[in-house]
Design a protein around this nucleic acid. Sequence first.
RNA 1: AGGCGCGUAGCUCAGCUGGUUAGAGUGCUUGCUUGACAUGCAAGAGGUCGGCGGUUCGAGUCCGCCCGUGCCUACCA
Length: 920
Amino acid sequence: MEKTYNPNSIEQKIYKNWENSGYFAPSKQGDPFCIVIPPPNVTGTLHMGHAFQDTIMDTLIRYQRMKGKNTLWQVGTDHAGIATQMVVERQLEIEGISRTELGRNAFEKKVWKWKKQSGDTITRQMKRLGTSTDWTKEKFTMDDDLADGVREVFIKLYEEGLIYKGKRLVNWDPILLTALSDLEVIQSDESGHLWHFKYPINDSDNFIVVATTRPETMLGDTAVAVNPKDSRYKDLIGKVVNLPLTNRSIPIIADEYVDQDFGSGCVKITPGHDFNDFEIGKKHSLDVINIFTREASMNKSVPEKYIGLDRFEARKLIVQEMEELELIEKIEDYNLSVPRGDRSGAILEPFLTDQWFVKMQPLAEPAIRAVKKGDIKFVPENWSKTYFEWMENIQDWCISRQLWWGHRIPAWYDEDNNVYVGINEEEIRDKHNISSSTELKQDEDVLDTWFSSALWPFSSLGWPKKTYDLETFYPTSVLVTGFDIIFFWVSRMIMMGIKFMGEIPFNEIYIHGLIRDKNGQKMSKSKGNILDPIDLIDGIDLDSLVEKRTQGLMQPEMADRIIKETKKEFPNGIPEFGTDALRFTFAILATTGRDIRLDLNRVEGYRNFCNKLWNATRFVKMNTSDMVFKKEFSDFKDLNLIDKWIQSRLNDTLDTVEHNFNVYRLDIAAKALYEFIWNDYCDWYLELSKSLLNDPDRSDEEKSVTKNNLISVLEKSLRALHPIIPFITEEIWQSLIDSNASKSIMMQSFPEKYDLKITKTDYESIEWLQSFVTNVRQIRSEMNISPKEKIDVLLEETNTQDLEKLDQTSSLIKDLASLNDIKVLKKKEDTPISAIALLGKSKILIPLEGLIDIDEEMKRLKKKFDKNSSEANSVKNRLTNKDFINKAPKEVVEELKNKLEKLEFNQEKIEEQIRMLSSN
RNA sequence: AGGCGCGUAGCUCAGCUGGUUAGAGUGCUUGCUUGACAUGCAAGAGGUCGGCGGUUCGAGUCCGCCCGUGCCUACCA
């Protein structure tokens, strides 16, 4: 083995081996355990969030596989309608071609080409991350069989009346020229104005004042509304207003909706361009005037001079003209929330179009019940509130998109615009008896991406075919996802799963946090703070990183700032950490919090952990090369105290790890393993084993028990660590034992605890040993006694228990604390002037002569005394409180009494020592 | 407006159903080229757990209010 751990040289070769050996496929034995991957978008590459999520899923899958489950991690990608179309359109733009010039078919071909490229990148990235996904089953949401499923679902819902087509106001993106669902709208707080317009009242010299944030929409006004209870305007109800700049007259109506206290208490009503106004319009049978084109410029329904103006140009002109007509009462600054498209960033328009909708309430009800009844559990549980909140107020879902990339809506129209929904044209002609002379045209629109992802838990397993995977793995075991797509995806999967499979799609939903940068900022291309997980694995120099972050920016003016900040944060680029270090970091960061800040210092720390593990192995191998490892112990009695102790610590660790893997606390599991390997195995056990193996008084047989134990504990630890850090554990495991070389750790069982009971006395002996060593080290350090200088130590006032412990451990203590001798003093013997430490009932004395500065020692003792006495006081106070004695549980009181006794004992000893030193 | 979080060591975060004077990593200080590892070893400094009040024998932990901060949903003429 090399002296330092070098991830790059081992990881890729190991992955190939796993994949070629077919280890990722379900074993077809044991209980099923299945995770379907949240399919990444084929918009480019995986980011840190994906890597985090993949680490969690892979850890769970590997753990369950080692537990003997029949595991499947279903892998695949999402076509991601708008997002992907945008990426490709932007590429075309660079080439100077527009989508429309290219035409639908040619454009689709381009997207498929891009899909291949992006999909390959994603696959490559995932493999570098070590994901044990079954690649032979990889799916894409637009594969033929998944498309069949989408059509089947659409048709069934249509036939049941759960999908309908309607002319309704929708959120319209005038840049992408498509409708969006409510969820794709981002409300952004922006500053604007509130214009107070005076509308002249017919047959009167008076005006009615309306306030608006969107002056241009006045051309589409069809009423002015006031509150029926508003005494100011009572008389105006029913009168007519001359709408300025147009030749139209519109009524003044009364509606409860109007807030008397807001603005003037009068509202202009524009049913064609405002969701609330649309509802009011319906109620009062008002005309609906659409004044915009699809691009949100003014259409032909407005007076000539406005036609063709962009909505904001029109606004300017209208304000100017109103001003000239002296019809503006005032203009106030106003903060409003502007709806923007989550992909394009364009200001959206409520726009009247024909769209397809899914009626949600009937689907939502059983989905709510499933979570209420506990059939599906959120982890952490609290997220169910978010789920209910949305589901209980659910709105119909607009599923049609005016895009070219996606599942084409399976609806055809005849010349009279009659709609026929079915699998294809032929089937429709058959079913409805339509002759070939009648022309049928398929709907141009495609479905919202999330429509097909909603089917993913069953469509990816083969539905509508009854495949082995579908029968075996549905409902899947757990869904691992971020809270940002609970509405978009999770809730819709539950609804569709129940509807089409008759069963929930997963039993548990593990919601993890979102990876953010060092400053808590969300990582995004536009902010220029993205990190490619591969760059943490392989490392990257500063120039390449800057290049990556500034390439293809939507706002090129950001480049300077991005360059500056990247240089500041990564002056030397990013070093190579390796996949395992990155994965361990992710695992240990997977707490219940929402935001996970990634600090590269932590990755470095866990790379060091990998190196530690690597070097511990080197030590073990160097010291055990002369023996053949026997996997199981026939008799634990052969194990000496130290060997038993580390096995027992391992048992405790395995308990923690197993429990926490099962409740998705990978952080606690990872931490337990880290602490065990570093603090128990390396810091103590390996050091102790050195003296056991070098002890001339021990027989070869005894030594070989310890050697065997060194391997045994390491081997089990490797298996326990494998789900989190698969590569290094595989590499080490195969090289650790000859017979492992031809096998894989990932196919081994997860380590079982040995049925080994260490007695309390034995356990205390180790603690006594550790405490002894630490005490001596402390005094050495504080008294500036060089660590290598061998010294003598005296033990005073020892009782029989301590003597027994000393008997068991003295040679070990001598080695670890580098002592010449430990001499036990009989009572009343003259003790030399010494530094002391307290250990149980005994005193450890380090003779001062030639070594210790008495003043220093006095200072040290006084500090100890103060600390001890303030603690003793607080304990005493509690014990003298009658309420405490009476009301607290007996064990607590008892424990505290023991503590006080010990504190007081120590107190006495320290005092005694101080007296002794000061008398000299 | 409603909902959900968060505020613990310089930094990043653990701390389960209330019970030793609060832990980890990283950073910092001191000393160590001891043959597994300087990606290391040993020792140490550092916190009145955002504030106030309450419940309790006992409160980072439960309750109320306040301050700061973040996210989500709805609405805002």
